[in-house]
């Protein structure tokens, strides 16, 4: 699907997104929640980059910050040749048609008082000047593309099931022919048999319109299916980034290994042969991350250095990045 030699459509460098904490009588600034703490990644044209991690690791914040739904704390974001990190929100509107988002909760992201035609047509009204007939034709075209019946155009969101609502959200995201779509947990609110329908639809649309996806999910088995490359996040940082098959077949970072071993195995025959790594404890608070490596409090392999020195992200093999002291020493020996 993707060529790694192609130019990156999206490149993010040193992205930081801190949310300030105010406390006390005068609401003084007492600290920050470091939701995203210095991450860099590139997304190539036509590929799907999976972004996985547990809740609270900052994966959704990366998605939202990439589209500049937030004013970022530091770093630069370049989408399709334009550096969007410094542009103010009003001027950003010109660039919005190129980048869109599909949200997790199809119920919450659709206005219950608007019918399907108005929901899907809203981006058209905002960014294009179409005649009434053109607008309706485009809406029908979009409904066809996501597999919804044209006669549904006058119905309201509550009349649809979860899977159909998510299709409406997808049609809206496609309305302006975007190049880049951030899919923020698009399937986690859906039932298993419906999830597969939506994932297949996203793949079909990608082929048809040449879309580039940032696919955010905590469901590793779905990411394994849809992504070309996968980035694993833990507590605001990317701990490992690798092509899909390498990441799933031979994970390098201890967190990735634990995360993969925690995925329930749907085949009881293979159940006993699997190595289970059960992590102790919970994720530390992003307002007060531990010294050294963020993962050192739960890492089964942590050594002395992990508790005071933060590991750098290194390229272990071409295209495979990880941030772990154990891997550093291993590469030095080799």
């Amino acid at each position: 699907m993707s060529e790694t030699s192609a130019a990156p459509l999206v490149s993010i460098e040193g992205l930081k997104m801190y949310f300030p904490i105010h406390a006390g009588l005068f609401r003084r600034h007492v600290g920050d929640i470091k939701a995203v703490d210095d991450i860099s990644l590139e997304i190539f044209e036509g590929e799907t980059l999976g972004l996985v991690g547990e809740s609270g690791c900052g994966k959704s914040t990366v998605g939202r910050a990439t589209l500049r739904l937030y004013d970022i704390t530091a770093g630069s974001i370049t989408i399709d040749g334009t550096n969007t990190s410094k542009i103010n929100q009003a001027d950003l509107r010109r660039f919005r048609p190129r980048m869109q988002m599909i949200f997790q909760d199809p119920q919450g992201s659709l206005n219950p008082r608007m019918n399907v035609a108005d929901i899907v047509g809203e981006p058209l009204d905002e960014h294009m000047s179409l005649s009434r007939d053109e607008r309706l034709a485009r809406i029908h075209e979009l409904l066809d593309a996501v597999g919804l019946n044209r006669s549904f155009a006058n119905r309201y969101p509550h009349e649809f099931s979860g899977g159909q609502r998510q299709r409406i959200g997808i049609a809206r995201a496609l309305a302006l022919n975007p190049k880049f779509i951030v899919c923020d947990e698009p399937i986690s609110a859906l039932d298993v048999s419906i999830q597969a329908q939506v994932v297949n639809l996203l793949e079909d649309l990608q082929k048809k319109f040449g879309l580039t996806y940032l696919f955010i999910s905590h469901d590793l088995s779905m990411v394994h299916h849809i992504a070309d490359r996968v980035a694993v996040m833990y507590l605001g940082k990317i701990v490992e980034l690798a092509p899909r098959d390498q990441l799933f077949n031979s994970p390098l970072h201890p967190y990735t290994q634990a995360l993969l071993s925690a995925v329930p195995e749907p085949n009881p025959a293979r159940q006993n042969t699997r190595v289970h790594i059960v992590l102790k404890g919970d994720v530390p608070s992003p307002s007060d991350p531990p010294a050294g490596c963020n993962f050192c409090t739960r890492c089964p392999k942590a050594i002395d250095i992990c508790h005071h020195l933060e590991p750098q992200t290194i390229e272990i093999e071409p295209g495979r990045f990880a941030a772990c002291h154990l891997l550093e020493s291993a590469t030095k020996v080799a």
Partner: peptide, 30 residues
Amino acid sequence: FENPQHPYTRALIETVPDIGAERPERLRTV
């Protein structure tokens, strides 16, 4: 799991992507 007989059970088992197995081109859907 070895011998699912009802079409619904079979479909449920097939729609879940298996990270231990070969990646299919398309997911089976119901």
